[in-house]
């Protein structure tokens, strides 16, 4: 699992590669702690290269969102595989997250 971060104008794009599960959750939390401590206002998380997410992975993303909201930050998820999106639908987390089809749209419409 890796998290690659790129700053694009006023927002930060994070590409996660690999699996987001109970094994990788601590490393993902650590990667985002740095951005959260700097109160990064807008983060787009690109999930193109994420092949698997379990309930710990979902909980990790919820925690990142919660921590960002605490200082008024906003997060968007994009390029999610159909199967992973279905987990957000089943758990109703689609109501909590801004889920955008692709990165270009997630960036251009992030006001």
């Amino acid at each position: 699992m890796s998290v690659k971060t790129e700053v694009k104008n006023d927002l930060t794009v994070c590409c996660i590669e690999g699996e987001i599960d109970i094994n990788t959750a601590p490393d993902i939390k650590k990667a985002f702690e740095k951005l959260i401590s700097k109160k990064t206002p807008k983060i787009v998380i690109n999930l193109t290269k994420v092949t698997y997410v379990d309930s710990s992975g979902l909980a990790t993303l919820v925690e990142i969102l919660k921590n960002m909201r605490a200082y008024g930050g906003r997060m968007r998820l994009c390029n999610m595989a159909h199967k992973i999106k279905s987990l957000f639908e089943i758990t109703k987390l689609e109501k909590l997250f801004e889920i955008i089809a692709d990165e270009a749209e997630a960036i251009s419409t992030f006001i």
Binding site: S55, A59, V62, I90, T91
Partner: peptide, 15 residues
């Protein structure tokens, strides 16, 4: 929705 736990069993029931 914002809670960290409880989704595992729920997902298994659904899938």
């Amino acid at each position: 929705l914002m809670k960290g736990s409880g989704r595992g069993v729920y997902l298994v029931r659904k899938l």
